[in-house]
Amino acid sequence: MTDLIFNVFILLTIIPCFWVALSSNIVHAAFSLLITLFGIAGLYVLLGADFIGVIQVIVYIGGILVLIIFGVMMTQRGKLLPLSIQLPGKLFGAVLTGVILAALLLSATRTLWPVAAVLGEPQLTSAAIGDLLLGKYLIPFEIASVLLLAALIGAVLIARRSVRGE
């Protein structure tokens, strides 16, 4: 039974990805990203990481994706944002990613992972994550807080500057 659900979620994740990569219309890409993120959230829950799954839905889809779609809408009217460091076209991109994909697939299947004999029944993780966060991983937690602070100030600074049209 879990295999069936597992395969459903995999399809839910992978298929929209192709739209994100290939579709010409940027709005289509944004919404297909939405579906992919839901698929990933499902995979997280399937992996017993319920807290992470919920966080993924709230933060990632609720926050980041809304921001991306907001960005897409804002820049929709004007011409495309030209970026001068475009690597030479699709062929190069396709070849490079193909090589990386092969290497990754090879490594994923070839190495024998020390898989745990008995898979523990997934229990509620949010409490455990809480005390881990403030216990063992205190330093990254602090640095992450400074990071979010700096990003906040920086984003406001740059955005406000452009609105005033300097």
Partner: peptide, 30 residues
């Protein structure tokens, strides 16, 4: 694919490569 570690790794590798492909070939900054 049955519910096991390698299949998860395959899924995440696919995600990685599709993401890289998007980064390399998209014209639009977003």
């Amino acid at each position: 694919m049955q519910y096991s570690l390698p299949s998860f790794l395959i899924v995440s590798s696919l995600l990685f490569c599709l993401g890289m492909y998007t980064v390399l070939t998209r014209r639009n900054a977003i």
